[in-house]
């Protein structure tokens, strides 16, 4: 038994070390930084609750929080709907099914910066492919990334496209868990395709939906690369996300203490939102 314990600890050691160095230590360091003022160069000085007080009254921070919520309010429903529809389509007998599955997953593994640059070109007002298609069918071009009202929705659509393959896989796994006899039973009971989806498929995918909502919420709050590359937070700061604001404070203004405070606040917000989500949609989960 003791030998077993020792070999177990030994095998867990590399991961434990990784966790200590890259998770536990940074978290602890960030928590300390909240009470410091530090520009990365000079010696840190104790700042008490100055950073927290500043954050509470910082309009730009709250603007970024609002922006991020706008992003999530578009991204989450879009992400769930597209992932679900694609999973349902890819779960049917389909010509070239493996090819389609791989195609939808491909964007997940492409670097976020590359995708952002690619989509900047697609979204370009005058020469972008999307606007050219719009003009072709007789519509007026849309200044996707330069109009304050369309910039964040455009980014949300792009992020949805990039991540959809990952959530499709989660839903596909869930779909394969629905017993065939249940599907046949409800079919024999007279359910139409919509009724089968409404009364069997959707409720039985609840655990997957909770997972998709949780993961895409956590990911969504960390929105950074896309506005950083595509809009720089504009126009009119409408795409300024929390993490972009954190990054700017840390590496443009060298305010490490304040950046850490934003980071801790972000972690608390994510925790609170995920908690509320689970309370609301998780209460039905008794599968």
């Amino acid at each position: 038994m003791r030998a077993e314990q020792r070999s177990g600890s030994l095998m867990a050691a590399p991961y434990a070390a990784f966790l200590l160095v890259f998770a536990a230590y940074p978290i602890a360091f960030a928590l300390v930084l909240v009470f410091l003022q530090w520009d990365l160069v000079t010696t840190p000085s104790f700042a008490g609750l100055d950073n927290v007080r500043l954050l509470a009254n910082d309009g730009r921070f709250w603007r970024a929080v609002a922006n991020t919520f706008v992003f999530l309010s578009i991204h989450l429903p879009l992400q769930i709907a597209t992932a679900l529809v694609l999973a349902l389509a890819l779960n049917r007998p389909l010509v070239l099914r493996s090819f389609w599955r791989a195609s939808f997953f491909l964007p997940v593994v492409i670097s976020g910066a590359v995708v952002a640059i690619l989509w900047s070109n697609l979204y370009a007002t005058d020469v972008g492919l999307i606007n050219r298609l719009l003009v072709r069918i007789g519509l007026t071009p849309v200044p996707w990334l330069t109009d304050p009202s369309t910039a964040m929705p455009a980014i949300a659509a792009m992020v949805t496209w990039k991540n959809v393959g990952f959530y499709v896989i989660i839903y596909l796994a869930g779909l394969q868990y629905i017993p065939r006899s249940c599907q046949e039973a409800i079919e024999m009971e007279g359910a139409t395709a919509w009724q089968r989806f409404r009364h069997l498929t959707l409720p039985m995918l609840l655990p997957q939906t909770i997972l998709v909502v949780t993961l895409s919420t956590i990911n969504g709050f960390q929105l950074f690369i896309e506005p950083y590359v595509m809009t720089g937070g504009g126009p009119l700061r409408r795409t300024y996300s929390i993490v972009l604001y954190l990054y700017t404070n840390a590496f443009s203004y060298q305010k490490m203490g304040y950046a850490a405070t934003i980071g801790v606040a972000l972690a608390l917000i994510i925790g609170a939102v995920v908690f509320i989500q689970r309370r609301v949609i998780g209460k039905e989960e008794t599968l």
Binding site: P179, S181, E187, G190, A191, L200
Partner: peptide, 16 residues
């Protein structure tokens, strides 16, 4: 199946 007016009891029951 839904237009045949038959009901089936499955081996693994198929309960929802």
């Amino acid at each position: 199946p839904r237009e045949r007016d038959v009901a089936m009891v499955f081996q693994d029951y198929g309960l929802y």
